[in-house]
Structure formats: C-alpha cells, structure tokens
Amino acid sequence: MVECVRAGDPAHFCVTARPNYVAGGAGLRVAMVVLLPWWGGIGAAFVKLGAWPVTLFMLLPLLGLAWAFHQVERHAGDFERLTLDDDRLVLDTHTPDADQHLEFNSHWVQVALYSTSAGGGNVLTLRSHGKEVAFGHLLSDEERTAISRELNLRLAQIKHY
C-alpha cells in the first residue's frame, strides 16, 4: 500500500510504500488446515501400500509453503520512503537485513522511468552524479509511473525557483 503526504507547496512531498499484509499469520494457518489433512490421509494410505516416496514428496511443497509465508511475515514491516524536503531528496529503505538512507540534491537528481518490456513492466530510478538507485520495489508499475510523473513535476518546479 502507498501513502502520499503532500504539502501545499511543490517542495514538500513524502511517499511511503509498504507491502500489503492483510491476512497476517492467518494465511499460513488456512493453507495448512487445508493441506495437512490431505497430506496425512493420502500419505498414510500410500505408505501402507508401499509407495512411501509419495508421502515424502508431498511434504516438500508444504515446507515450501511454510517458508514462503515465513518470508512474507518477515518482510511485512519493510518500507521504502521517498521524502522531498526543499533541496533534499531523501530515500529510506528498511528490510529485516539492512537499512539504507540516501540523500540527493533536489537540483541535481534525475528521476527516470524505464520501460522493461512491451508488456508494461517498468523500473524507477533516481540518478545523481553518475550513480543510479532503484526505487519502488514495493510499488506496482502504475504507481511507479504516477510517482515518477509527480516527482518530475515537483523537481522541475524546484529547479525553476
């Protein structure tokens, strides 16, 4: 989900993106309530018939699913925040493994939107002094497009001051 905070003037703007995490831990519980009885029932039947590899193989995706839900939960608190504050453009990202804080000069920074394919995918980057940083992993293509437009508009206004 995306939150945008806009001040009246073009020089103040803050956008924060967080992953959706609507079901919380219930997701995994629902999945397991559906799948575990199936695994137990069929698995036991096939062990009895002598086809034990079936039971073994059936366990693997369940572990995969548990891992996947765990990953989503671990990253539920992630965020990406872009703050435009007069002549500073600040990018903050948070993941369980690393925090990142980058500052750009609003007068120099360039916002670029690359289309990655004809299908509609895109990448949003911030460029300054020969360096380029991607922003918007947690945004959809449409949101990245909208934000790049808004940001470019605001930066242009700042540069014209």
Partner: peptide, 17 residues
C-alpha cells in the same frame, strides 16, 4: 509448485486493504 506457492501467498496476504 513454485508458481502455486507464489499465487497462494499473493492472494492470501498481498490483497489491497
């Protein structure tokens, strides 16, 4: 299977509020 896990997690947890 990888695709299915991805889809299950996406639908259950990544819906818009």
């Amino acid at each position: 299977i990888m695709g299915a896990i991805n889809i299950i997690v996406t639908i259950l947890n990544l819906r818009a509020p």
